[in-house]
Simulated assay, not measured.
Amino acid sequence: MEKITLYYFLVNNKATLGLGENIKLLLEDAALEHEYVRLELDEAWNNKKVQLVKEGLYSGTLPYIEVGGKKFGRTVPIMRYISVKLGNKYHGANDEENQILDSAADIIGDWFESAKLAFNGSNEDKKKYVEVDTPRFLDIFERYLSAQEGPYILGEKISYSDFLIYHRLDDDMALDRLADYPNLTKFVQSFVERPNIKKHLASLSK
């Protein structure tokens, strides 16, 4: 592929927080040439958003990528687009496998929305999220990963949904809450040892 430019906010001054990191992880794993542009969520963003809509980015939201002079938006569709461009590298082998990936991605979206509501809610909302909602989603993905012997949703082959799962765990600060989830534990152990991912994660601590 041509060089990709990824645009996303710098959330709470943390390099990996938010939706953009899902795409960043996939770009790193695929060893694609790219640039990551971080924008501030300030008054200037309002003008930028209007300009993006005029330039054809229908929703005017981040993250989005620019490649070959064209802009493409929305996290999961971007990841699917890149996978297709790479010969379905991060897709399943058939319609049934792709349905599994789509359903997992959809549930990750539910998890993200649940986290966002809790973050913007009361202390009671936050408490419920930690004690009830997060374990519920962990249970769901433990079941997804138990269906195959391999560490990922589809077994040995990694998919775009696996990047979503890992980053949701990371964003949710749930990576240290997996003692009762053997399949999620195996998944994380395998994911972070992928050569390009390992290199990327190591660079974040510098």
Rank of each mutant, 00 (worst) to 15 (best):
106 D>P: 01
145 L>H: 11
189 Q>I: 07
114 S>C: 05
202 A>I: 08
134 T>F: 00
12 N>H: 01
30 A>G: 13
197 I>D: 11
102 D>V: 04
70 K>R: 12
45 W>G: 09
155 G>D: 05
81 Y>M: 14
196 N>S: 11
116 K>F: 09
178 L>M: 03
54 K>D: 10
143 R>T: 15
120 N>Y: 03
3 K>F: 00
204 L>Y: 09
148 Q>H: 12
8 Y>S: 09
100 I>K: 15
157 K>Y: 02
50 V>L: 13
166 Y>H: 13
85 K>W: 04
71 K>W: 00
57 L>E: 06
193 E>G: 03
10 L>D: 12
24 K>F: 07
154 L>F: 11
24 K>Y: 11
102 D>S: 13
123 N>E: 09
66 E>G: 09
120 N>F: 03
30 A>N: 12
114 S>K: 05
200 H>D: 09
88 N>V: 00
206 K>A: 14
147 A>F: 05
4 I>R: 07
82 I>H: 12
41 L>T: 04
11 V>T: 09
112 F>Y: 12
39 L>C: 02
128 K>E: 03
178 L>R: 04
29 D>G: 13
98 N>P: 05
168 R>F: 01
37 V>T: 14
167 H>G: 09
144 Y>L: 02
188 V>W: 04
166 Y>D: 02
199 K>C: 02
3 K>P: 00
72 F>Y: 15
113 E>R: 14
172 D>C: 04
39 L>T: 06
169 L>H: 07
87 G>W: 10
153 I>A: 02
189 Q>L: 08
139 D>T: 10
24 K>T: 14
15 A>Y: 05
96 E>W: 10
127 K>S: 04
138 L>W: 09
168 R>E: 03
126 K>W: 02
156 E>Q: 13
49 K>E: 05
26 L>W: 11
19 L>F: 10
79 M>S: 12
115 A>R: 08
9 F>G: 01
66 E>F: 00
80 R>M: 09
204 L>M: 13
178 L>H: 03
134 T>M: 03
106 D>N: 10
91 H>A: 13
145 L>K: 12
35 E>M: 03
17 L>H: 07
11 V>D: 05
191 F>S: 08
23 I>P: 13
205 S>E: 13
189 Q>M: 06
164 L>M: 11
70 K>C: 01
140 I>Q: 07
26 L>K: 15
91 H>P: 00
5 T>P: 07
10 L>T: 11
11 V>A: 03
16 T>A: 07
176 D>Q: 03
192 V>L: 08
115 A>M: 12
158 I>L: 06
4 I>A: 01
182 P>E: 00
120 N>K: 14
122 S>N: 05
71 K>D: 00
11 V>W: 02
156 E>D: 15
110 D>E: 14
118 A>H: 04
128 K>S: 07
165 I>Y: 04
191 F>T: 07
63 P>N: 09
46 N>I: 08
72 F>L: 15
60 G>T: 10
180 D>V: 01
60 G>S: 12
115 A>E: 02
166 Y>S: 06
4 I>S: 02
167 H>W: 01
